[in-house]
């Protein structure tokens, strides 16, 4: 009887104290981590590293852009990989180009995510249109279209 009373008392006391602590938790200020900032900043830094190459591409200076993008210091830059792939694709080395593009979008999902303002969705859509009906590139088209539609995986 005594042990029953003690156990029940502990139960109700801990319940009451827990409710009290949760009320405190409600008023506690917890800085909400913002993954948006983390993703955006890391991606934006990488994009800025290759901005010169993107400008060169706009001026049709593909040779110079290739030299820029092949710099060893950019070996871990997903944008460098993507734009190098794009140049190869546009200049006839389609398979090589698509391989690099596929590698880039597999590596960094946010690259084509609608929320990132400097994403490469528009370019990917164009590439997909260009390879539609090309049997040898159907796996790349599947990858690009599937990724653009979103969802898990």
């Amino acid at each position: 009887m005594k042990i029953r009373l003690i156990t029940l008392s502990v139960l109700f006391l801990s319940l009451a104290y827990l409710a009290f602590l949760i009320r405190d938790l409600h008023f506690l200020s917890i800085p909400k981590s913002n993954p948006k900032e983390t993703i955006y900043l890391s991606l934006e830094m990488k994009r800025r590293e290759v901005e010169r190459a993107i400008d060169l591409l706009k001026e049709d200076k593909t040779e110079e852009a290739i030299i820029f993008l092949k710099d060893e210091r950019l070996s871990n830059n997903v944008f460098a990989k993507f734009y190098l792939g794009l140049i190869y694709f546009e200049t006839g080395k389609e398979k090589e180009g698509l391989e690099l593009i596929a590698g880039a979008i597999r590596e960094e999902q946010v690259l084509y995510d609608g929320y990132y303002p400097d994403n490469v969705r528009r370019i990917l859509n164009k590439i997909s249109e260009k390879i539609t009906g090309r049997e040898e590139f159907k796996n790349y088209r599947h990858l690009i279209d599937s990724k653009l539609k979103g969802g898990c995986g």
Binding site: H26, G150, G151
Partner: peptide, 17 residues
């Protein structure tokens, strides 16, 4: 529901849909 900040929550990708 009381303190969502305790948990991580995606703002992009499948977790944000």
């Amino acid at each position: 529901f009381l303190k969502g900040e305790l948990f991580a929550e995606s703002v992009s990708g499948a977790g944000a849909e």
